[in-house]
Design a protein around this nucleic acid. Structure first.
Lengths: 333, 333
DNA sequence: TCTTAGTACGTTACCTGTAACATAACAAAA
DNA sequence: TTTTGTTATGTTACAGGTAACGTACTAAGA
């Protein structure tokens, strides 16, 4: 089953054709560099042997890898699938390979993943977090490659940040809810990462400015629809007056909507519910979910554009790039 | 901003400590191989320089990379996030790195991604498809590494397949719907990949066995909740009698449920709706979605276990591993 | 005192593709 | 004819960590 003889090298291909490996190497990098006859002979030999390119010598000789590393906290979180789509729409066109890794919201795992990506000599890195371990920062420094941090623009960037203002976004949405007359709005949060906390800050700011008491119901568990339902139950048990829910993401919000439907709580008459990011589910459901619409794919695109620009030698024109957000009120407020 | 001096090598570290790079190399592979004093000196120097490991020489010398490649068609599709979680729960514990790539359901992109992964000398590959390009098959052959194909077990495997029977699963679910008295069941499919077609086969088999006419409403567009709503509209316009919908996945099914809610069509009295995979959204929504529950995380776990077992020299005990499925009727049938 | 064993470290060779340079053959221009 | 340019290919050196082997030194045993 498994082929014991080692994989063919350029020399093997060259031997078949009867030239030196240099000629084959040239063909692989740009076929027009060898004569037309030679092109045919080499193509045949490559096909025959099933030659697989070998990146190792490139890496040894400090060549550009034409690969960039992407780090996201989670693949389950739909947000990052869309960010990745944005990134790859640009890298693909520019001829860059992407190396994708995820770290489950853990700084130590992030550090390990970054070490792994750097050991393969990626030309640049796109991170999703604005907070990193000391060793991570040190490695990024010695790697000497361009790095972009996505998602949030409220913290200081290592080199460059692309995203939106999580605090302002939450503040805006909660303010809108208050203006619509809701008084007892509770914040639901899961998996306490940096952005969950930033959103909480925006929420509390809006509540305090209107002399309302902020109440947060949080858990360390990873976010899910089911969890949204559970957190709503918990909230209603502890805070009977609750007439509004602002969630750290759409999953929790939708789970809360479902729970209201089960309990016969009218939305938005008896309960307002708002989510974050504006995913397809929420926008297609009944009632249409209120949500902060964030430019996820654009964040990916702009990040990739900036990184590739810098790889081509352009200077950093804008250290912090804020792509904004929109408030979608839907039918759940 | 960007560090122009090249990244430190083992030699640089060795120079600081005043030993040869071999000593540092030994320390990195197993600190106990050098004296206690030396351990301290080397640790300090490594930290000071921010040394980043370099995989290139390993790759050159045919060493095991301790990395395995994972190929999934899509990251947007929740199914594969869960499969990946299953894989990594095993690889993590076994000390293997994973290199993740996706190919948007395109055979050519898959080929390119596999070439890229193989060029980094991954020790094994986990694929999600049972159908590949000729060059893909050739490369896998010459790479001489263990390969596992996930998800479906109805086609012939290159080496080994782990999954369930898509045709049987669809057949079961549709048969149940028919038994419950639904007669005019339509199949909704998006993004025509292999599995969409297998499910259609199962659907048609069940319909024909009960002397009912199979009707499929399909599109090349990628699946989404909104698309589910659109396809339902289209179905109702073309086939007024429709009293049941069987969808290739939960997203479409949920979109269809939402559309029924908007149009005031009672579920399950006037319309039965069933999805595929049993995701959290569907299970937490009102009404609870009927769905084929598939062992997604288990598929990942078993695939990784088999692969790592083979990397350790174990023979293939079972070429086809069928992990089965369950029918969840929920409240939408 | 002389082995012997063990420890700690050094030396050498190797893995494979490519940049940089060299060369050969021929064509075109002077 | 000579020079110059062009094209197609060959030659050499190099990248960095590690296996395999070699060596120097120390300590214990005879």
């Amino acid at each position: 089953m498994i082929n014991k003889k080692k994989r063919p090298t350029l020399q093997d291909v060259a031997d078949i054709v009867g030239v030196t490996k240099m000629t084959v190497s040239r063909y692989l990098r740009d076929p027009s560099q060898v004569s037309a006859d030679m092109q045919k002979s080499i193509a045949v030999a490559l096909e025959e042997l099933g030659y697989i390119p070998n990146r190792a010598p490139d890496l040894l000789s400090h060549a550009k890898s034409h690969a960039i590393g992407i780090l996201v906290p989670s693949l389950t979180n739909q947000v990052f699938s869309e960010v990745i789509r944005g990134i790859e729409s640009i890298t693909e066109a520019a001829g860059y390979q992407t190396m994708l890794a995820h770290y489950g919201y853990s700084l130590e795992v992030e550090e390990q993943r970054i070490s792994h990506l750097l050991s393969y000599h990626v030309d640049g890195l796109i991170l999703s977090e604005s907070h990193h371990s000391v060793r991570t920062l040190k490695m990024i420094e010695t790697a000497g490659i361009p790095v972009i941090e996505m998602m949030d623009v409220t913290s200081a960037a290592i080199q460059q940040a692309v995203g939106f203002d999580n605090i302002a976004a939450s503040y805006c949405m909660v303010s809108q809810m208050i203006q619509r007359g809701y008084q007892h709005i509770v914040y639901l949060g899961a998996r306490m990462d940096v952005r969950t906390q930033l959103k909480q800050q925006g929420y509390e700011k809006a509540m305090r400015e209107h002399h309302l008491t902020p109440i947060s119901v949080m858990t360390e568990e990873p976010s899910s629809f089911t969890l949204g339902a559970e957190l709503l139950q918990q909230t209603l048990a502890q805070h009977q007056q609750t007439d509004g829910i602002f969630c750290t993401n759409d999953d929790l919000a939708i789970g809360a909507v479902f729970e209201c439907q089960r309990q016969g709580i009218a939305i938005p008459d008896k309960m307002a519910i708002a989510g974050f990011h504006g995913h397809d589910v929420g926008q297609s459901m009944v009632p249409k979910l209120a949500s902060v619409i964030t430019p996820r794919e654009e964040i990916g695109r702009v990040s990739a554009q900036q990184l590739i620009g810098r790889l081509k030698g352009q200077p950093i024109d804008n250290k912090i790039i804020d792509l904004g957000f929109k408030i979608q009120l839907g039918e759940s407020i």
